[in-house]
Design a protein around this nucleic acid. Structure first.
Lengths: 128, 128
DNA sequence: ATAATAATGATAATGATTATCATTTTATGG
DNA sequence: CCATAAAATGATAATCATTATCATTATTAT
């Protein structure tokens, strides 16, 4: 993997955004800094970074794809109102791979939990 | 929701297939029984059934969407080779909603776990 | 039976992602 | 430090799953 300014900027942008952005969101943000950047380059690099384990891909409720720079073990909470993604600490369900192995014999490489509910922000809005 | 033969057949087909089929797979199967059926009808009804809680939508690894007639609580194992979906029993991780609530304050409506790994079938093929 | 409502089939439209390809950038090694 | 090979880019066309549209048909309740 050869260095490129675009890839560096994409990774930096992902790390600076606490939300878990989509490819298109990163593209829109980066256009301000590097107007010549192409949407294809953003997709290419996000996928490449994910394949190399430098970032993670998350699937949203509505089928939307988000990216996460946080490599430490954790899960995700997706708001059913606004589709935003939040982190949930790993220790709510540690070592599930071992449990699955002993109960089913399946060898687990990785797993992800997506919790669904209404986030505090949207919950607030419900009551103005 | 009004009765229709198409919806009944779609639900029946889903129930008869142990795999968790995609909309297109169901369409291909049903065409043999009811050649006049339209792909749009299959999509429409699967979504409608899912909205009414009669079946469940699952997101695959590659972004593909599968449907599941099994409403009892359980999780999913997705093979990273063949993308097939298998069931994992609920009791490998029961009552996570309560744990998340007490640790984060987030109110969980539902959650799904997708385990990833290589399924026994693909594992066999690796060594012929 | 009839009127109201919902569902269908066919197809066009959408939207996100990927493929293509000529050009440019990066790494390397003589 | 140039020359070459390999990889990355930007622009855009292509793809593919899903959704929207709409005229027609089927279902339900009165």
């Amino acid at each position: 993997m050869k260095y490129s300014k675009q890839r560096e900027l994409i990774l930096k942008t992902l790390q600076e955004h606490m939300v878990h952005p989509t490819a298109d969101y990163i593209y829109e943000v980066l256009k301000k800094e590097l107007p010549s950047i192409s949407l294809a380059t953003v997709y290419r690099n996000l996928n490449q970074l994910a394949e190399n384990g430098m970032i993670k891909k998350i699937e949203g409720l509505d089928g939307s794809v988000h990216f996460d720079h946080n490599l430490s073990k954790h899960y995700h909470f997706i708001c059913t109102k606004c589709n935003k993604v939040y982190d949930v600490p790993y220790d709510v369900a540690p070592d599930l791979a071992d449990k699955v192995l002993s109960q089913t014999g399946l060898i687990i490489e990785s797993y992800d939990i997506s919790f669904k509910g209404i986030c505090p922000e949207c919950h607030k809005k419900e009551f103005h």
